[in-house]
Write a protein that binds this DNA or RNA. Structure first.
Lengths: 196, 196
DNA sequence: CCTACCGATCGGTAGG
DNA sequence: CCTACCGATCGGTAGG
């Protein structure tokens, strides 16, 4: 699969923004690693912020699509849906660490309206996780702890993966996802001895 | 308690670095919010990086001291020590959001040697958490899951708090800490039905 | 702690 | 996609 120059710019910039942060990365850095002159970058993009926006939109779509695919399985138990959502999230993160961590950490450098759009998308996504947890509390044997706090704990743990995951490390993405899913599902399952 | 100008610079810079990031914050921004001229900042600090370093060192010390205080209680069970370490960590984070999130996210802008020192300190700190979990697996009824992965899940969840915590929000730092502690301790407790 | 100033680098444009 | 260039801003210094 051949990458167009435009796609190359996004993936190169994604890696650089992840390494150094958006503000500390110059358009010359991006151009150099793409094999062109600094000013030539503007033959492909309108501004540095547009590169960031393109990366952020790409990541947002991948997270959204992954969660949507799980939502279709209305026949599954809450625990099984939560497991699949965790697996899908981990897969998106580990698939493109640059894109994911830019989406998670660099969106504050976007313009006001774009930043607001990102926050709204993240909010919707978080609500999908909370929904599954609340479903499990109503009918799937999940303990009735504060669903909002558990949701944040899970998502922060999953997002933290892009801070330490290495493709050549001990655990594969699948192993990490399975461990995390079991950990949090076990945490949510109310034990028989628990008071009602 | 009166803040010296030097202390004011650190707390002002901590808040700004948290809001905009280190690279996107100018020394003029810090000076202005401190009520002095841009160049006057250099009457108090040698460089912009020294301000970052001072904040990072302060946070590192607070995390270290908080965990050390818990380690002294060798009479407690692993679960109780883990609970206290979680409570201590959440307290440090919520006590000074700027300092904590700069420590967690902006250390990559330090010089090579300072960055290495931060990574070493974080590694030591992480090992303390893993130690308690492994203790619990040996003698405290904790399930024998991958201790490294659980440790990262817990720390990433705790560190994520400084991304959404608001002093005027629903949950107090103590409530958050207690919920998180119960969640993860419950996740670690092996159920009687579990195979050995 | 201030005013005045410096070289370097930034994002971006003109014209080909 | 390149060369040449621009105004703005950056971290930091000199001298008081």
């Amino acid at each position: 699969m051949v990458e167009t120059r435009r796609q190359q710019i996004d993936s190169v910039a994604g890696a650089l923004f992840r390494e150094r942060g958006y503000a500390a990365t110059s358009v010359r850095d991006i151009a150099q690693r793409s094999g062109i002159q600094g000013a030539s970058l503007y033959a492909h993009v309108a501004s540095k912020e547009d590169v960031l926006w393109s990366i952020v939109q790409g990541a947002a779509r991948r997270f959204h699509d992954a969660a949507s695919a799980v939502s279709e399985h209305t026949d599954l138990t809450a625990a099984d849906r939560l497991r699949r959502m965790i697996q899908a999230h981990v897969a998106v993160v580990t698939d493109d660490l640059g894109q994911a961590s830019v989406f998670l950490h660099e969106w504050r450098h976007l313009s006001d309206s774009r930043r607001a759009a990102v926050l709204a998308a993240r909010d919707t996504y978080e609500r999908r996780f909370r929904q599954v947890i609340e479903d499990g509390q109503r009918s799937g044997g999940f303990a009735t702890v504060e669903a909002g706090l558990v949701t944040r704990a899970i998502l922060d743990a999953l997002n933290g993966i892009c801070g330490w995951y290495r493709p050549d490390g001990r655990s594969s993405p699948t192993q990490i996802a399975d461990h995390y899913a079991e950990l949090f599902i076990h945490a949510l399952k109310s034990t028989p001895e628990d008071p009602p």
